[in-house]
Simulated assay, not measured.
Amino acid sequence: MALIRDIARVCKSKNAGPFELTVDVVFDDPALYRRVKDTGVLSADLFARLYNVSAKSVIFTPYDAASAFKATFPRLLPSGEIGDSDVYGCQQHAPLLDVDIPL
């Protein structure tokens, strides 16, 4: 087992406009990326569970050429809305860091 925080080169989040977030997970090693991809752990369903959104609303894309995954999904609150604690969306990747990949 391996945590995303320990095996990914990059794991970051940012706003994709005021109403959506995007999360990128990038690997240095294409072989490791393929192993992670083959587990099926990183998926629209995972992002739906972690971020409390519908799986249908998650756009999940593996990018083989870049050894990367991208997920875009609705923010629970629009950026800057009263109660929003991360206007830029740059801290929203944190729940993903502790995801355990069965390698």
Rank of each mutant, 00 (worst) to 15 (best):
M1T: 14
I4F: 07
I4D: 01
D6M: 08
I7T: 07
R9A: 14
R9K: 14
V10G: 06
S13F: 04
K14F: 04
K14P: 04
N15W: 02
A16Q: 03
G17C: 09
G17Y: 06
G17Q: 05
E20H: 11
L21Y: 03
V25P: 05
V26F: 11
F27A: 01
F27W: 03
D28M: 09
A31C: 04
A31Q: 12
L32N: 02
R35C: 00
G40S: 07
L42Q: 05
S43M: 09
A44H: 13
A44D: 14
Y51C: 09
Y51W: 05
Y51H: 13
Y51D: 06
V53G: 06
K56G: 05
K56D: 15
S57E: 14
I59Y: 03
I59E: 09
F60C: 02
P62K: 14
D64V: 10
A65Y: 02
F69E: 03
A71E: 05
F73C: 03
P74V: 00
L76K: 14
L76A: 12
L76E: 14
L77P: 01
L77T: 04
P78H: 08
S79P: 05
G80T: 11
G80D: 03
G80P: 08
E81R: 07
D84L: 04
D86M: 05
D86G: 12
V87K: 15
V87Y: 14
Y88M: 14
Q92D: 04
H93N: 03
D98P: 00
D98A: 10
V99E: 03
I101G: 03
L103K: 08
